[in-house]
C-alpha cells in the first residue's frame, strides 16, 4: 500500500510462493496417495495369501451359493410360506433381544452419560472414571461377552441380551454425553434453586432438552442391535441366527429353509431401517404436521 513501485515484484513473489505451495501440497498429496495405494495393495495380497481360497478363483463363484439357494427355494416355493411362519418365532426372539438390549442399554447409557458430563455430573471428580467405563464397555465386542456368558449361563437369549446391552450402554453413553454437554444449564440451576435433588434436576431439567436426540440415537442403535443379535445367534445365542446356522449346516436339501430365513432377516432389517429412519427424521427436524395446533 505504501510503496507502489514494489507492487509488481511483490505480486510475482506472491505468485511464485503460491505456485510453490501448491506444488508442495500436490507432492505431499501424491506421496500420501501412493502410500495409501501401496498399503491397500500389500494388504490385499496378504489377506489373499492367508485366505483359504484366493480372490482370483473365488470371485467367479460368489453367486454360486445364492443361485443354488434360490434355485432350490424356487423349486419348493410352495413350502416357503410354511417356512416363513415356522421361523417367525425365531425372528421375534432376535427382535426381542435387540429391543430389550436397546432399552436396557439406553437406560444405563443415560445414567453413564449424565455422570460423565461436565456441569451435570453428580460426582464431578469421577467424570474420567465414568468416561473410561463407557470406553471399555464400548470397546468390548458383543461376541466376547456373549461367548463367556453362554459358557456360564447356557445358550439362549439372555447372554446375547446382556452382551448387546453392555456394548449399547457404552456406545450411547458417549453419544449421549456429547449431546448433554450442549444442553442449557439454566433449567438445572432453576430446579436447584427450588431444592430439587440430582435425579429431579436431571429428569426434569436435562432429559426434556435432550430427549428427542436420545431417542433418535437409541433408534439408530436398535437398527444396529438387530444385526448384532442375528450375528450372536449364529454363535449360539438363539434366535434367527441360530436357525440360519442349523439350516446351513444341513446343506443341500434344506436350502429352502435357509432362503426363508434370509428373506425374514432381510425384510426385518429393511422394515426397521425404514421405520426408524422416518421416526428419526421427525424427531430431529420436528413434526411438520401438528406444529401449529
Amino acid at each position: 500500500m505504501t510503496d507502489l513501485t514494489g507492487g509488481v515484484t511483490d505480486i510475482t513473489r506472491v505468485h511464485d510462493e503460491y505456485i510453490a505451495l501448491t506444488r508442495r501440497k500436490r507432492v505431499y498429496g501424491g506421496i500420501l496417495l501412493i502410500l495409501f495405494v501401496a498399503l491397500m495393495a500389500a494388504g490385499f495380497r496378504t489377506a489373499d495369501s492367508r485366505n483359504a481360497g484366493s480372490f482370483a478363483e473365488g470371485w467367479t463363484h460368489v453367486f454360486d451359493y445364492p443361485a443354488e439357494v434360490l434355485a432350490e427355494a424356487l423349486e419348493k416355493s410352495a413350502q416357503l410360506p410354511g417356512h416363513l411362519l415356522h421361523f417367525l418365532p425365531a425372528l421375534v426372539e432376535t427382535l426381542n433381544i435387540a429391543a430389550a438390549a436397546t432399552l436396557a442399554g439406553t437406560l444405563a447409557g443415560t445414567v453413564l452419560a449424565l455422570l460423565s458430563t461436565r456441569g451435570l455430573a453428580y460426582w464431578p471428580r469421577l467424570i474420567p472414571l465414568f468416561r473410561r467405563i463407557a470406553d471399555i464397555c464400548r470397546a468390548v465386542p458383543e461376541i466376547v461377552i456373549a461367548l463367556v456368558l453362554i459358557f456360564v449361563l447356557g445358550g439362549g437369549p439372555v447372554p446375547a441380551m446382556i452382551a448387546i446391552a453392555i456394548h449399547t450402554a457404552g456406545a450411547l453413553g458417549k453419544l449421549f454425553s456429547e449431546v448433554s454437554e450442549n444442553a442449557s444449564l439454566k433449567p438445572v440451576e432453576g430446579l436447584e434453586s427450588v431444592g430439587a435433588n440430582w435425579a429431579q434436576r436431571m429428569y426434569l431439567g436435562v432429559i426434556p432438552q435432550v430427549g428427542p436426540n436420545f431417542v433418535s440415537y437409541a433408534l439408530l442403535r436398535f437398527e444396529i442391535n438387530i444385526r448384532a443379535s442375528a450375528i450372536l445367534g449364529f454363535v449360539g445365542a438363539g434366535g434367527i441366527g441360530y436357525e440360519l446356522r442349523n439350516a446351513m449346516s444341513w446343506g443341500q436339501g434344506r436350502y429352502d429353509e435357509a432362503a426363508a430365513i434370509f428373506l425374514l432377516l432381510f425384510s426385518a432389517i429393511v422394515v426397521v431401517d425404514q421405520v426408524s429412519d422416518r421416526l428419526r427424521e421427525r424427531l430431529t427436524h420436528g413434526a411438520k404436521a401438528g406444529a401449529t395446533a
Binding site: A47, N51, A52, G53, S54, V62
Partner: peptide, 10 residues
C-alpha cells in the same frame, strides 16, 4: 462369501 472364498481374512 465364505462359500466362494473359504475361511480367512479376505
Amino acid at each position: 462369501l465364505a462359500r466362494a472364498f473359504g475361511p480367512g481374512p479376505l
